[in-house]
Lab assay of single mutants.
Amino acid sequence: NKFNKELQWATWEILNLPNLNEEQVKAFIDSLKDDPSQSANLLAEAKKLNDAQA
């Protein structure tokens, strides 16, 4: 289903952001699991944090 694909993509993207630490990655992944419908928003937040920590 649509959410599953978005969830998988967002998870992969977050796991490959170079500037997030392990705790941050885990928090984002946990949030994705809690509410897959928010995957696009969570991914945007993760990318923002990644850029801020570059």
Rank of each mutant, 00 (worst) to 15 (best):
Q53D: 03
F3W: 07
Q24E: 03
D51M: 13
L42Y: 14
K33G: 07
A27W: 15
D34E: 09
L20Q: 00
N19G: 04
D34K: 13
W12Y: 08
N4A: 07
P36G: 03
E45M: 15
L49T: 06
F28Q: 00
L17G: 00
F28M: 04
E23Q: 14
K2F: 10
E23L: 12
A40V: 09
F28P: 00
W12R: 05
E6T: 06
E23V: 13
K2I: 15
P18Q: 08
S37Q: 08
A27D: 06
L42K: 06
K2A: 15
V25L: 07
P36Y: 04
K26L: 10
K26A: 11
V25Q: 13
A54V: 08
L49A: 05
Q38K: 12
A44G: 07
L15P: 02
A40S: 11
K33M: 14
W9S: 06
V25T: 09
I29V: 10
E45L: 14
E45W: 12
L20Y: 00
N21R: 12
S31Q: 13
D30V: 13
L42W: 07
D30G: 15
L20I: 04
K26R: 13
D35I: 04
I14K: 01
P18S: 09
Q8Y: 10
L17N: 01
D34G: 12
P36F: 08
Q8K: 09
Q24V: 04
A52W: 09
N4R: 04
N21H: 12
E23H: 11
L42A: 05
L20E: 00
Q8S: 05
D34L: 14
L43R: 04
E13Q: 15
Q8E: 15
I29K: 03
E23A: 13
A46W: 02
N4Y: 13
V25S: 08
T11S: 06
S31H: 10
N16G: 07
T11H: 03
N16K: 13
E22V: 11
Q24M: 04
N16H: 13
I14A: 01
N41A: 13
T11F: 10
E6S: 04
L32Q: 01
F3R: 10
Q8R: 08
D35S: 07
F28V: 02
A44Q: 08
N41Q: 12
N21T: 11
D35H: 08
E13S: 10
A10I: 11
L32Y: 02
S31M: 13
D30E: 11
Q53S: 05
N1Y: 01
N4I: 12
E13A: 12
D35E: 07
S39A: 14
E6V: 11
F3L: 13
A10G: 03
K26W: 13
A40I: 09
A54P: 06
V25I: 11
N50S: 10
L42F: 09
A46M: 02
E45A: 14
K33D: 05
K5D: 15
V25F: 03
N4M: 08
L43A: 06
L7S: 03
N16I: 05
I29H: 03
W9A: 12
Q24K: 01
N4V: 06
K5F: 04
S37L: 06
L32P: 00
P36M: 06
I14E: 01
K2W: 15
N19L: 04
D51E: 13
N41G: 07
K33A: 10
W12F: 07
Q53T: 05
A27G: 12
W9K: 06
N19E: 03
N16V: 05
N41M: 14
L49K: 04
W9N: 05
A46I: 02
L15V: 05
L20G: 00
A46F: 02
A10N: 03
D51A: 13
